[in-house]
Nucleic acid binder design. Structure first.
Length: 803
RNA sequence: GCGGAUGUGGCGGAAUGGCAGACGCAUCAGACUCAAAAUCUGACGGGGGUGACCUCGUGAGGGUUCAAGUCCCUCCAUCCGCACCA
């Protein structure tokens, strides 16, 4: 009887061996492959089987690439600044630096259980001054390029986290982090001009091998639209209001105008009669939170008492205020065409404003409009010299026509807003700026970076709009680097996304004290070839990273414009009934016991086997028994055959080649769950075969190499048991020979009218005529009608159609 | 409201338009065992038939095709994203 498979002994043995004898070696000749995991923030909860999945997927892919002859960049690090780490520290009542270090140690221990082939020499930590020196350096560069600027304005404010937030961090009016309703707060903020890159962020997505879903989410977030800005003269005043519209073709149908309550002309437009109502409306709008404003189903508004003149026909149209118009998009003012816009229609109906139809489907005017006609196709009517045109054509031509007539211009708009970059929190990179009364905002000189985050007694957020750093007088008070006079430091810190926006660059040169990354290493090892992580960062981290990379390209730090060539989003592992694993739900499955009882390799295989990697999967502990049984049968197959010296029969050659083909194509297609089932299938077939002739050594060797990326310990052990001294990863991924895969005999299903009636065995090279004849013969007694058609699909099916 | 994904046995899931349910879990039966566990063998969508077989069946309803889980149309359900962006 062969030695039973002892996962504990075997896995420990190889763990030790890999430590002293790494298998991923850079000989300077191999091409590089950079496979990256989204780095974790060091949560106090550690990692569960859901986190495992992503790491296993990337490790399998990495090891596969290694076997294909690449030198692997497969690093790991810590996204340790920011709200999650700080909130955890506050909850536990310890300093974030301490809790972060502890959590990192714990997760590092857990990660070791995955046996991923991380290169820990490349480790980075965003809270390490040698790292955030460069996070600050990038900010200084952006400041110098005019991309970082200060602005006072009402921003998104989370009352629970007590800090300002970026637009991207507000989800359905709630804080992305804690779920609290986001309010507005007027604060002087550092902003990053990501909008300058809107067009490039949109256009360069073409090159990316990313899931369409993520590309679309980014495109929608950037939100490009084409249209025109149109100037409306205010009646009896020497002022104009500019509106933005994507439907200039409907200009003749504008029957009113709406300004955002925050519009700079809003209160100036009121008359003696309307003044009180207008002021009240503006005040009430300013008090509403995002959530309130979103939840208001019914339109509200107030008439200012003033009128605008339609530049096309001189029509007098009332100017209203309403909070359904956003102050910070377009010009904060719109022309309203109730006949052709749902929102304007609703507003006009409520406030009895006339509706003029200017586009008619099939040229016919609608008698009593009950809803807006919003399609941009139809014949233009009621529109002076535009009458009779096709509206879709006019829509395209109108901006230029308006521009030529001198009351507006063709324009493009984006939904993307600049990035609110200041956080009123302690646990982040200090923004390296000094405020001087004489010189204004001055960056900390580059040679003085890093600007260290000072030790502080009370790191809790203050909620006043100031960061806890503001209390440290000896830190705040400094001198101006330009004029030398007393000056004050900026006390806000950077958002948690600052470090993660560029960390992937640092892995390839993490000890460089002179540069963010050397040109040489950047060219040799970057960009990232494969990036694996959850979809939750689609418009956060992934957008910010692209922005940073483009900026660093522009200032010559890197020579590529996109950081992540290929992206894969793994699905989430959930608890029973698709409920997200969380501590509060009490449904977290820890990998620790599973590794102990079944071994790392079994858990790795099961993580893949649960379901398609891109879809969410429900975790069921019982399923792991199946892969564990497979592992044992697989092991026994090898052990029972390794010393038999079985002959390499034609059948074995065939099955070996088919196996290589199937595993490789499924792996290439990222169908990792079917790779595992493929191993099971071939294992079952080989067990059958081994009962007859035994399995030849070559096939057993191929088994060891194929399984190695998935179950690395077992791959190594089998390779050694087969008598080899080197690592299984010193091999090349096996190739297959299509000719050797061919069967001599094939099965063909014989159908009558599409229903299978028999299955016959024929020679693989049978002619069409012979095949059909054999097929008919097999179902002769059922061929009772007149045959009208015979379909022959070589190697698959014969369908005889009879009446 | 708009956009996307998903829907297949008791369960997780397989199927370049070509024999639906691979592979695995659970269950049942048998072998081994004093017994149990482990392991091995077999059965395992519904209905019918002693039987070789017949018949229905991939969320619902239509359609295209010799042939549809797969393509087209109309719905339904679940999940996700966006949401007054003019």
């Amino acid at each position: 009887m062969a030695t039973p498979y002892n996962h504990r002994e075997i896995e420990q043995k190889w763990r030790k061996k890999w430590e002293t004898d790494p298998v991923n070696v850079n000989d300077g000749k191999k091409p590089k492959y950079y496979c990256l995991d989204m780095f974790p923030y060091p949560s106090g909860n550690g990692i569960h089987v859901g986190h495992w999945r992503g790491y296993v997927i990337s490790d399998v892919w990495s090891r596969y690439k290694m076997l294909q002859g690449y030198y692997l960049i497969h690093p790991m690090g810590w996204d340790a600044f920011g709200l999650p780490a700080e909130n955890y520290a506050i909850k536990m009542g310890v300093h974030p630096a301490k809790s972060t270090a502890e959590n990192i140690a714990n997760i590092k221990r857990q990660l070791a259980e995955i046996a991923a082939i991380y290169d820990w020499d490349r480790e980075v930590n965003t809270t390490d001054p040698e790292f955030y020196k460069w996070t600050q350096w990038i900010f200084v560069k952006m400041f110098k390029e005019g991309l970082a600027y200060e602005k006072e304005m009402p921003i998104n404010w989370c009352p629970s986290c007590k800090t300002g937030l970026a637009n991207e961090e507000v989800v359905n009016g709630k804080c992305e982090r804690c779920g609290e309703d986001v309010t507005k707060k007027n604060l002087k903020q550092w902003m990053l001009k990501i909008t300058k890159y809107a067009e490039r962020l949109l256009a360069d997505m073409d090159q990316l091998d990313w899931p369409e879903k993520v590309k679309k989410m980014q495109a929608d977030w950037i939100g490009k639209s084409y249209g025109a800005e149109v100037d409306f003269q205010i009646k009896d005043r020497d002022e104009k209001i500019t509106v933005y519209t994507t439907r200039p073709d409907t200009l003749y149908g504008a029957t009113f105008m709406v300004l955002a309550p925050e519009h700079k002309l809003a209160s100036k437009l009121s008359t003696d009669e309307t003044k009180e109502a207008v002021e009240k409306y503006i005040y009430e709008a300013s008090m509403k939170s995002n959530v309130d404003r979103l939840q208001d189903k019914e339109k509200t508004g107030v008439f200012t008492g003033s009128y605008a003149i339609n530049p096309l026909n001189g029509a007098k149209i009332p100017i209203w205020l309403s909070d359904y118009v956003l102050a910070d998009y377009g010009t904060g003012a719109i022309m309203c065409v109730p006949a052709h816009d749902d929102r304007d229609f609703e507003f006009a109906t409520k406030f009895n404003i006339p509706i003029i139809q200017v586009i008619a489907k099939d040229g016919k005017e609608i008698e009593n409009m009950t809803e807006a006609y919003t399609e941009a196709s139809g014949i233009v009517i009621n529109s002076g010299d535009w009458n009779g045109m096709e509206s879709s054509v006019l829509k395209k031509e109108a901006p230029e026509m308006i521009e030529k007539r001198g009351f507006g211009k063709k324009t493009t708009n984006y939904k993307l807003r600049d990035w609110v970059f200041s956080r009123q929190r302690y646990w982040g990179e200090p923004i390296p700026i000094i405020h001087c009364d004489e010189c204004g905002a001055v960056p900390v000189p580059e040679e003085q970076l890093p600007l260290l985050l000072p030790e502080v007694e009370s790191y809790q957020p203050t909620g006043t709009g100031e960061s806890p750093l503001a209390d440290i007088e000896e830190w705040v008070n400094t001198t101006c680097p330009v004029c030398g006079k007393p000056a004050k430091r900026e006390t806000n810190t950077m958002p948690q996304w600052a470090g993660s926006s560029w960390y992937f660059l640092r892995y390839v040169d993490n000890k460089n004290s002179k540069e963010l990354v050397s040109k040489e290493n950047a060219e040799k090892y970057l960009p990232v070839d494969m990036y694996i992580g959850g979809v939750e960062h689609a418009v956060l981290h992934l957008l910010y990273s692209r922005f940073y990379t483009k900026f660093l390209y522009d200032i010559g730090v890197v020579n590529f414009k996109e950081p992540f060539t290929k992206l894969f989003n793994q699905g989430m592992i959930t608890g029973k009934n698709g409920i997200k694993m969380s501590k509060s739900k009490g449904n977290i499955v820890s990998p620790d016991e599973l590794v102990r009882d079944y071994g790392c390799d079994s858990l790795r295989l099961y993580e893949l086997f649960v379901g398609p990697p891109e879809l969410d999967s429900e975790w069921d502990d019982r399923g792991i028994d199946g892969v564990y049984r497979f592992m044992n049968r697989f092991w026994n197959l090898v052990m029972e055959n390794k010393d038999k010296n079985a002959k390499e029969t034609k059948e074995l050659v065939k099955i070996r080649n088919k196996m290589i083909y199937d595993i490789t194509t499924r792996l290439e297609a990222f169908n990792l769950n079917t790779v595992v089932s493929g191993f099971m299938e071939y294992n079952n077939k080989l067990i059958e075969l081994s009962k007859k002739d035994g399995i030849d050594i070559k096939t057993l060797e191929v088994l060891a190499i194929l399984i190695a990326p998935f179950a690395p310990h077992m791959g190594e052990e089998i390779w050694q048991q087969l008598g080899h001294k080197n690592s299984v990863f010193d091999n090349e991924w096996p190739s297959y020979d299509e000719a050797a895969m061919k069967d001599d005999e094939i099965e063909i299903a014989i159908q009558i009218n599409g229903k299978t009636r028999a299955v016959i065995q024929v020679a693989a090279d049978i002619s069409k005529e012979d095949a059909i004849a054999a097929g008919k013969n097999a179902v002769a007694e059922k061929l009772t009608g007149t045959i009208v058609k015979e379909i022959y699909v070589p190697g698959r099916i014969i369908n005889i159609v009879q009446k």
